[in-house]
Simulated scan of single mutants.
Amino acid sequence: MNSIKVGIIGGAGYTGGELLRILIHHRFAEVVFVNSQSQAGKPVSSTHTDLLGDTDLLFSESLAFDTVDVIFLCSGHGQSAKFLAENDVPSNMKIIDLSTDFRNETEGFVYGLPELNRHKIRQATKIANPGCFATSIQLALLPLAANGLIKDEVHVSAVTGSTGAGQSLSASTHFSWRNNNASIYKAFTHQHLAEIGQSLSQLQSGFDKEINFIPYRGNFTRGIMANVYLNFEGTLAEAKEIFESYYSEHPFCHISESPIDLKQVVNTNKCLIQLQKEGSKLLITSIIDNLVKGASGQAVQNMNLAFGLDETEGLKLKSVGF
């Protein structure tokens, strides 16, 4: 097939850089322009220094919509809606937004969680990429919701790496504060709760259970571990059967018999899930890379689906291991 011509808006940040790392090695994608107001005219590799030798692209101020098939919006939250309001984007161009702006499926956007909406994504022109915490937590709960088995409130304790806060510096991202440290933020009020509830309601009609979510900042760079627990009447074997059945046709989700750790998924588009049963409680541990499956990798997975490619194209990535 002809290559998919790609434009990236807001290419100087973490998600833009991760997107570039994936797309410049994608067999069927060609990055035509990387827009950045702050870095215009400079080599992409001057910001994303690991790309030295991999690309000669320059950051650009121009928005050559007529030269691309799809644009990825990688700017901060609130900026995507502003960008689309201020620019005349062709109606037939595909848009994949990595911000929070359209995750409630407004303005014609489809919620881009392939394990939930694969068939909708294949037909979509506008796709709203899920949040990173939301991805990890939803993948822990979708199989139960699909079987109407979330009958009580859900408890979630999840930790994310520093890249989850974005590239802009803040007091809680400085090395001297973050290293050898841990903290809670946005307890019970995290912005990803809305999209989690929306997805569970899609699968389990009338879903109205409380999701008690405590997010943690971890003293590492990338990855999310979500520990989700709730009442479950069945056995561990029955739970495993439910999860394995649900994910049997989804190439990036795998159920592990052994305890899991973040290095297994860092730099990959995988979600690994491990189940434990203790008394009436089912514990579901779900791990992803927040910048790949939680952001740019999932965005490429959505692009693959929207253009009729195998959804794993360009995403058979190597984990760090050690």
Rank of each mutant, 00 (worst) to 15 (best):
S176N: 13
S162A: 11
K186P: 04
T189A: 07
H174K: 07
L193G: 06
R222A: 14
A226Y: 13
A140N: 09
S201F: 02
F188S: 05
N231D: 14
F207N: 10
A165D: 07
G206D: 04
S183G: 11
N147H: 12
G223D: 01
A140V: 15
P143L: 12
S170L: 09
A146L: 01
F232D: 00
S170D: 01
E233W: 15
T163I: 09
L141D: 00
T189K: 11
L169S: 02
I150M: 01
L139F: 11
T160H: 14
F213G: 01
R217N: 11
L203F: 15
G161V: 07
S176H: 15
H190C: 06
S183R: 05
L139T: 15
I196N: 02
V154I: 11
H190D: 05
I184M: 09
V156Y: 05
K209G: 08
R217E: 02
Q202D: 09
H192Y: 01
A171S: 08
F220L: 08
S201W: 00
F188M: 13
N180M: 11
A146K: 12
N181E: 02
A171W: 03
F207H: 12
G223M: 06
A182Y: 15
I150C: 00
A171L: 08
R178P: 04
A182Q: 11
N231Q: 14
A140D: 14
M225G: 04
A158Y: 06
S183I: 10
G164N: 14
L139R: 14
I224L: 06
N181V: 03
L149D: 05
A171P: 01
H174V: 02
N212G: 05
L230K: 01
G148C: 06
Q204E: 13
A158H: 02
Y185P: 00
R222K: 10
L193D: 00
S162V: 14
L149H: 06
N219T: 12
Q167E: 03
F220A: 08
N227D: 09
T189P: 00
G148K: 06
S176L: 14
Q202E: 02
I211C: 01
L230F: 10
K209F: 11
W177E: 05
E153G: 14
G161N: 09
R222S: 12
L230D: 00
V159I: 13
N227P: 06
N181Q: 08
S205M: 14
N179G: 12
T163W: 09
Q204A: 11
I196R: 06
G197N: 11
V156H: 03
E210D: 09
F213Y: 13
H174N: 02
D152I: 15
S172D: 09
E195G: 11
L230E: 01
A146Q: 05
